[in-house]
Amino acid sequence: MRVNFTVNGRPQEADDVWEGESLLYVLRERLGLPGSKNACEQGECGSCTVRLDGVPVCSCLVAAGQVEGREVVTVEGLADYAKERACGHRSPEGQDSQTGEGTELAPIQQAFIDAGAVQCGFCTPGLLVAADEMLERNPNPSDADIREALSGNLCRCTGYEKIMDAVRLAAARQGEAV
């Protein structure tokens, strides 16, 4: 079947999609967007987290056909998404580079780098999407809020402390900016 939906602000059409295929598979294998990671395919790890109509979900558990006509934001589009949020409007075209290369990083991405929250990096895309959404909803999160918001994202490397640091850093910078 064919699925039409919007990814990172751009209309996309995926062809020859198998009816039982996940959104994650479509993004990675059909649209050339490998940012969302496939680690468990059962909702346990969160490394495939994307936003579906703004809501963080595990893309491995969304059937491709369910996204027809809807909007998806992946880690590749996070920088643009954050920029548009900051200036309060959406650029009509979407970004030039589909895979997010050559664009400035989103504040949450920069914070992860600055805090040393990335080791092997496999969990990072999902964490970035989840953390960015939390900061959008809750600009002054407590540590408990951060833990709760990231409780669906597993990391096997960092022990989470640096990830906590990164989110606190992003929140602090966001606070300074306004």
Partner: peptide, 9 residues
């Protein structure tokens, strides 16, 4: 139940 991502769906 599970995690925020699962509870959202």
């Amino acid at each position: 139940v599970a995690s925020p991502q699962i509870r959202n769906r």
